[in-house]
Design a protein around this nucleic acid. Structure first.
Lengths: 179, 179
DNA sequence: TATTGTTATACTCTATAACTATA
DNA sequence: TATAGTTATAGAGTATAACAATA
């Protein structure tokens, strides 16, 4: 069990890292917004899948996923194939154009990171990536079992009861490593 | 210089950590949105400051800062005092109510992290916080010197030239540790 | 009756640009 | 002329809820 202070400090750093994410987003091609990039990367990494599975991996509501998927489908980067096993469902699969875009995205993000972190030793880059993956897993695990998220009646403020409605994720099984 | 693969992996993990940030946001009191929390935390950490300095620390445009500051001022959490040295400028300072809110925020975020990461050894929590802080610094350093951000003509796609317009940050000097 | 996915609507956060008031 | 801050407007991302089609 870590000291209280570290937890608070970690929480602050997590908010602050938004600036880094925004800058990473700015390095993307203009036709491919951040959310589209997320969809394409996951399809490249995990292979074809259904909407619901993708929503899990993205850790956002399916309504959100639906819009992002429609967007990348409109641009011809994925196909939405009928699922023979369930007529309500759709199978999402990268097109060759989509695959090319994934490679482009990977090139750009790698270049950006290389540029910014050129003085980082390899172990620290890998270590940070590892810890972030584990952080997500720890949060996913809690989302998995639905024991009351919070009670929050600490003091000065009205209590919230944060209810989420997003399913479990866990993402550590690459299917394909682009380029 | 780390291997290319680690850079790409880190970029992916950074996008994916958005889910964690969203969940952290959900733990906040309803009257205090994420952006307000950021403003209050920085004022608690660094003490009173001007708008422009706060915009730097937040790493967002000053127009954005202005709105967030107006919001927390409306709720009585900060005062906007005249700057005797420059009549254009305003000094931002936490009110007692604002300070109480900061404590509440700290309590909540710490509790959330404690809840989710209860099986993490203290060193890993601290290590992740440390690496994230350093990540921000590395990105800030690049923003500081304005050598052409990018050229981007790798292949398949139209090139972007990401221009930012946000100043340098660097945040490692706590002024006050709440609670 | 429950589940898969879509759409409509609303809210948060951010950036750009035009504007003011000082410097 | 340049800088500090404000406001208007637009765009990206997300959540909730109502809905259609199928299980």
């Amino acid at each position: 069990m870590a000291e209280q202070t570290y937890y608070g400090e970690l929480a602050r750093q997590l908010s602050a890292v938004g600036a880094v994410r925004r800058e990473l987003t700015r390095s993307l091609p203009p036709e491919c917004a951040g959310a589209s990039a997320g969809v394409l990367s996951l399809l490249a990494r995990h292979g074809e899948m259904r909407m619901s599975r993708l929503a899990e991996l993205l850790a956002v509501d399916m309504s959100v996923t639906s819009r992002h998927v429609a967007h990348v489908a409109d641009r011809g980067w994925i196909d939405r194939l009928p699922d023979p096993a369930d007529k309500r469902s759709r199978i999402l699969r990268l097109t060759p154009t989509g695959l090319a875009m994934v490679d482009e995205l990977h090139r750009r993000s790698t270049r950006m990171m290389t540029d910014r972190l050129n003085d980082w030793p390899a172990e620290e880059v890998a270590e940070l990536a590892r810890l972030l993956a584990r952080l997500r897993e720890s949060f996913d695990d809690c989302r998995a079992d639905p024991r009351a998220p919070y009670s929050e009646d600490t003091t000065s403020t009205t209590g919230t009861t944060g209810t989420t409605g997003i399913a479990r994720t866990t993402d550590t099984t690459p299917t394909r490593t682009p380029a």
